[in-house]
């Protein structure tokens, strides 16, 4: 990982020096452990601030929307897929981007780490290949990375970037034997009442802070439907029906576009696993349209397309 950091710094410095880009977007080490932050640098000397490890869970695509300058940006699998979606949806031009591809090994779930050390204060984390060491004032524990991956990363089949101009390292081997939708299948098998109970409990804690929406690169509308007043689609309170309406519609807006980057869950202050909604739609897109978001620049997501000669049986 340190190797990646050095390489990223080197590339950013070069791009800025050669004036190939006006800005470089990456991560810097967070002020707290496990909380790396997005950073935009515009001068070669700032390149040293760039950093990469397994806690870069926020989606950088958010910072690309509607920019008009030339941008260098780092991208792992899911981030690069969101860039593809951004390009298709006219939020950025491909020519504006210099994409520094990062073959990704998955992000570590900071909540799981905190749980593992019983919520004791963590002062530092040291990463050593397949393991990492969590250090506190009076403790030091070593864990296996594999077991602490974010749940989306654990089942990720697109770790390598889809589009890039340069790579920071060798492509990693893609996972193939993962069953990505076990959790969704479990919900699908429930009877309607149980399902309703499941989703009601799932969003029971939601405080409607919209952090999930704000962290999501797909949510770039000038005015979100939750803020519309004529007509008002969703009430402002935390009435469970309103909250459910919000989550349903947010997920629906992501159908065929979500790359399961996990930013929404990562930023949720209440720890709500709202990927249950988007994953179901991802699964449907895969099964009904053989579609995974952000893999090609040539085709728009299935819900954006009108075809009179739809070849699927479910439309007649």
């Amino acid at each position: 990982m340190v190797k990646y950091t050095e390489k990223i710094q080197e590339i950013a410095k070069r791009l800025l020096q050669e004036e190939k880009v006006d800005v470089f977007i990456g991560y810097r080490k967070g002020t707290m452990p496990m909380m790396n932050q997005p950073v935009l640098i515009t001068a070669p000397e700032e390149a040293a601030r760039l950093y990469w490890d397994n806690f870069c869970g926020l989606n950088l695509c958010n910072y690309l929307t509607k920019r008009t300058d030339r941008i260098g940006v780092i991208a792992n699998g899911c981030n690069s897929r969101n860039m593809v979606t951004h390009i298709i949806e006219n939020q950025i031009q491909r020519e504006q981007l210099y994409i520094v591809g990062i073959p990704c090994e998955g992000m570590i779930d900071h909540r799981a780490v905190m749980r593992a050390v019983h919520y004791k204060e963590i002062l530092d984390i040291e990463q050593n290949g397949k393991t990492f060491v969590v250090k506190g004032a009076d403790f030091e524990e070593t864990f296996e990375k594999e077991k602490f991956l974010q749940s989306n990363c654990a089942v990720c089949t697109h770790r390598n970037p889809v589009i890039y101009d340069e790579l920071v390292g060798e492509l990693v081997e893609e996972q193939t034997d993962v069953s990505a939708y076990e959790d969704v299948e479990k919900v699908e098998a429930m009877d309607p009442e149980k399902k309703q109970g499941f989703f009601t409990r799932l969003i029971g804690r939601c405080i409607r802070c919209y952090a999930c929406r704000n962290a999501c690169p797909l949510c770039y509308c000038p005015t979100c439907f939750v803020d519309e007043s004529k007509p008002q689609w969703v009430g402002k309170s935390i009435d469970p029906t309103d909250t459910l309406t919000f989550h349903f519609l947010r997920a629906y807006h992501c159908a065929g576009r979500c790359t399961d980057c996990g930013a929404c869950e990562r930023v949720c202050p209440m720890g709500i696993p709202m990927r249950q909604f988007t994953k179901k739609l991802n699964k449907d897109c895969l099964e009904l349209f053989s579609w995974e978001a952000g893999l090609t620049l040539d085709q728009r997501p299935p819900l954006d397309v009108y075809r009179p000669d739809d070849y699927n049986d479910f439309i007649k």
């Binding site: 689609w233 029906t241 309103d242 349903f248 519609l249």
Partner: peptide, 10 residues
């Protein structure tokens, strides 16, 4: 629109 369907349920 899906919004109508949810509005009807609401």
């Amino acid at each position: 629109s899906p919004k109508f369907i949810l509005a009807a349920f609401r």
